[in-house]
């Protein structure tokens, strides 16, 4: 069972991620992509707008 013996590339967290539905995976990827650029900033009001836009784009 791959879930029990994750290889270095197939970490447990990656397997957990793969278990999520496609729509959720895409949303997570999009959010993480946005967060990378601004995660260290104190003021980042735009991030909420961007997350909402991604949720609306991906979930029709």
């Amino acid at each position: 069972m791959p879930a029990e013996n994750p290889t270095p590339t197939e970490t447990r967290s990656r397997l957990e991620f793969q278990k999520a539905p496609e729509e959720i995976r895409e949303l997570i990827k999009a959010v993480l992509h946005e967060e990378r650029a601004v995660m260290h900033l104190r003021r980042r009001d735009d991030i909420y707008v961007k997350i909402l836009q991604h949720a609306k784009r991906l979930v029709q």
Binding site: P21, I28, A55
Partner: peptide, 11 residues
């Protein structure tokens, strides 16, 4: 959409 955001956060 609400469910998707909640589930993304939970995952």
């Amino acid at each position: 959409r609400l469910t998707a955001v909640e589930e993304a956060a939970a995952t």
